[in-house]
Design a protein around this nucleic acid. Structure first.
Lengths: 339, 339
DNA sequence: GTTAGAAATGGCATCGATAACATAGGCTCG
DNA sequence: CGAGCCTATGTTATCGATGCCATTTCTAAC
């Protein structure tokens, strides 16, 4: 095993490139980082050497000496079906990639504060430059604040940590728009199948519904709570089907809405003839299942992207940002009430 | 700015811990890595110091000196709606987290080879210890092979690179099971709405369908190709609705199936009375939309998890692994054909 | 009572890139 | 024509943990 052999085996380093190009390692470094003070001719030679040796820089070394990892962490809830989260993820990835940042993910299995702490810790260990939290946890512990103190953090539709900025779609507005649509059609009362109360989205949508009813001078009926799944919608729908005066329902997600619709139909109540239903998300299937769902769409993708730019561009705490307003797609799950 | 101030400001290093515990940095390192030769008493002291100073190790330094990053890269297709991919992701994350590995994601926007190369390059730059490719790309270029040569790679339901191992659910079997179910009900012919041909899944499901028909001595009708979206299913459904002899359809995904169903219904053909339809995925909504869908479920989560364990446990190329077989859920979108 | 060997620990070089400083040549301007 | 200043480049120390080797202490065995 000669020295040459050894050198051939490991990844080429900057020193190797420098040798090949007949310059110092520092010049290579400058070239690769687009430093202004490099002679174009030298640059050419360096780039040629890089190409020829197949050099890739070592991110660990880069990070160790520069102190920055060019990585941002993304905390996610590990749960198959929640539409909005996956859209946020895509937005984060795209925006981070654009800016030359890598994205490291940490998923948590449940809404437990301990799990959350562990995830943040893992990301901190990895030395991420920033963190996007896309988890709807309400409570924030001391320990979480300790961890996030040193790392810029943006929370998407979640809880507010001391130093963290929060950015979110106006979920209250979504709830308001949905509810108002039903009232406009002539319904006197709107029932609500909410998401789990620990979810900020769920809470805000419920608030929007409540406020809208209050403005209209209607007393809000009791809230039925689901867990976002079609099955939970189905169970709450079975209850609603037994209450004759129910003519309009606002479901907090499309999937729950379809569950509710199925339960109603099984009890002989049709949508939209007997009951109108409107929900939030506008998943791809909303327009194609029977009946096509009237639903409020929100741009979660943009929200994820915005989180990243907030993280990277503004080092100082900034006031909350808000993405574009929710948009109602009227389809055939809603109609004027029967007389 | 005294020396003490400076020290208080940066993250404590191993040397700081060592000083606090009255040992050498080396001993701290050994303690933290569970090296056998450390006196229990010393270990206690070190751990106490770690706790007190709030020490977190610096992953860059660790990686630089040990040469391993404890990170695995995951290549994904950036596309909102594909059910199976997000399940794979969850599986990868869970298994990697379990093993103490971080997951870094690289999404690609389309099935372009150049994009793929760039993503792999980014992951290679990050120094990942392994890569899981969850992208159904067929072609593999020289450059991709160059990159993956040095890094262990597992492909989930995708193309085979020279050194890469491939692991997959038996999609052919899924296609076969679905088709056989329709034949068993008494249908003489089964039509197929396939996924895009660049997708390995789509191809394999189509193969299973084809083979099953061949075994039954039926000549396969022309294939209609969609793009997985409900909308594409709808468009192909409009065509199928115009062909009177169509009584049974196998759709390559649940979302497309719902699109097909809607198109059929708009042309006055009901499911399952006039036409039976079966698909693959078993998304949460499959049981709750109208009609509840007969569909084949596959364990993509397990597939993702298996990819990681393959990556971490077996350094040498191993033969392909196969996850548990697909399972048919019979609901009400399929029935015996009308006489 | 010496020696072999294990257990516990410390010292030093090292990984690869970068920051900070140093230097050499070329240009401008009074 | 020399002071002053840019430009292009090289030198050296540094980031923080680890690998390897050296050292000390202790125990067991002959």
């Amino acid at each position: 095993m000669t020295d040459a052999t050894t050198r051939a085996m490991r990844q080429p380093s900057m020193a190797d490139v420098a040798r090949a190009a007949g310059v110092s390692a520092q010049t290579v470094s400058r070239t690769l980082r687009d430093s202004p003070n490099v002679n174009p001719e030298t640059r050419q030679r360096v780039l040629a050497a890089v190409e020829q040796l197949g050099y890739r820089f070592n991110s660990a070394a880069k990070m160790l000496s520069s102190g920055r990892s060019h990585t941002i962490g993304l905390v996610l809830l590990q749960s198959g079906g929640y539409y909005s989260r996956s859209a946020v993820t895509a937005g984060v990835e795209a925006a981070a990639g654009e800016a030359g940042y890598a994205v490291s993910i940490a998923t948590i299995a449940g809404l437990d504060t301990g799990l959350m702490e562990r995830s943040l810790g893992k990301l901190a260990d990895q030395g991420v430059d920033g963190i996007v939290i896309a988890v709807p946890l309400i409570s924030v512990t001391q320990k979480m604040e300790d961890i996030t103190r040193d790392i810029p953090t943006v929370t998407v539709d979640g809880s507010r940590t001391a130093g963290a900025r929060v950015l979110g779609i106006d979920q209250r507005e979504a709830g308001r728009v949905a509810t108002q649509h039903l009232l406009d059609l002539g319904h006197r009362q709107v029932w609500h199948v909410a998401g789990p109360d620990e979810w900020i989205e769920a809470r805000q949508r419920r608030q929007g519904w409540q406020e809208c009813l209050a403005v209209a001078g209607v007393e809000a009926p009791p809230v039925l709570e689901g867990d976002w799944s079609p099955d939970s919608g189905f169970r709450q729908g079975q209850i609603l089907a037994m209450i004759p005066e129910v003519t309009a329902i606002f479901a907090a997600s499309d999937e729950m809405a379809f569950g509710v619709i199925r339960a109603l139909r099984e009890r002989g109540r049709t949508v939209p003839d007997d009951v109108s239903i409107v929900s939030v998300d506008d998943i791809a299937l909303a327009a194609y299942c029977a009946p096509p769902l009237t639903t409020v769409r929100q741009d979660f993708y943009a929200s994820g992207a915005a989180a990243v730019s907030l993280l990277l561009q503004a080092p100082d705490p900034v006031d909350d940002a808000v993405i574009e307003p929710p948009l109602l797609s009227v389809r055939s799950s809603t109609a004027v009430p029967r007389l």
